[in-house]
């Protein structure tokens, strides 16, 4: 595992990977948009509002997926003092926050016509709002220290504490009475939605995942460049002071 976390190796591997993930993202999202807007039927109860699902549900999955990956990276950063792990969490946080924001707003836009309300303080909606604040809090905390190492440590602890929220979000629809419907895709006994709706949903979800990989690689490369700028500035300042 340490071999893949070497920054020089990461830069080489990511340069090879990037065109493929970027290309896959473009193709998958074009296909996904076509299927969700033209290629799938309106719901017999919800009409065309069901098309919001093809954005809302993949964004919700991504919000949990990204956070879980960040928490795993935080554990690796704390245990093995891994420099790339901390940088990964920092690079991924704004993307995760973006997906959570999409999830919340599209959910609201779907709830207004179908539930008759933009927002309710029930278990599912509230726990996802907490996830959004966890992302924002992590981003603020990591950047609040002059020493990036100390910021990364504090952020890692926050991520590991916040991971309790992930199962709460997933099972909130089973544990409490909520307006939100229970899981219909990731559940015991297989999906309950028709394949004409399941396929666009999965295509969008894979497209969101490749989008995440693409943008997180770009952001990681930028973070590595920032590290390099710090060391270069330090040595230029050293040259200036002594020379």
């Amino acid at each position: 595992m340490h071999r893949f976390a070497n920054p020089a190796r990461f830069l080489r591997l990511s340069a090879l990977l990037l065109p493929w993930t970027a290309g896959a993202t473009v193709i998958l999202l074009i296909a996904g948009l076509y299927l969700s807007l033209f290629g799938s039927p309106p719901d017999y109860q919800q009409g065309d509002t069901v098309r919001i699902m093809y954005i809302h549900v993949p964004a919700a999955w991504m919000s949990l997926f990204v956070y879980t990956n960040m928490a795993i990276a935080a554990a690796a950063g704390l245990v093995w003092k891994h420099p790339l792990a901390d940088l990964f969490a920092k690079a991924a946080a704004p993307i995760g926050a973006g997906f959570t924001l999409i999830c919340l707003v599209t959910g609201s836009l779907w709830g207004a016509p179908m539930w008759g309300t933009w927002w309710v303080w029930d278990a599912r909606l509230t726990s996802v709002l907490i996830l959004f604040f966890l992302y924002l809090g992590y981003m603020a905390l990591v950047n609040a220290f002059d020493d990036p190492q100390r910021g990364a440590r504090a952020g890692d602890v926050l991520l590991l504490v916040g991971i309790v929220n992930v199962p709460i979000i997933k099972f909130s629809v089973d544990w409490w009475n909520t307006l939100h419907q229970p899981a219909s895709v990731v559940r015991m006994g297989g999906p309950t939605i028709d394949s004409s709706m399941l396929i666009p949903l999965l295509v969008m979800a894979v497209g969101f995942t490749t989008y995440f990989i693409t943008v997180v690689i770009l952001r990681l490369r930028a973070e590595l460049a920032q590290r390099k700028i710090q060391t270069l500035r330090f040595s230029v300042a050293g040259d200036g002071a002594t020379g």
């Binding site: 065309d48 509002t49 964004a59």
Partner: peptide
């Protein structure tokens, strides 16, 4: 089907956030 005011803002916001994040990340890099 009469739900344009809900469906299109949902797709618009998703496009805005995802394209915006990509643009900011590329610029930073």
């Amino acid at each position: 089907g009469g739900y344009a005011a809900f469906v299109w803002p949902a797709y618009g916001l998703a496009a805005l956030v995802l394209i915006g994040l990509l643009a900011v990340s590329l610029k930073g890099l």
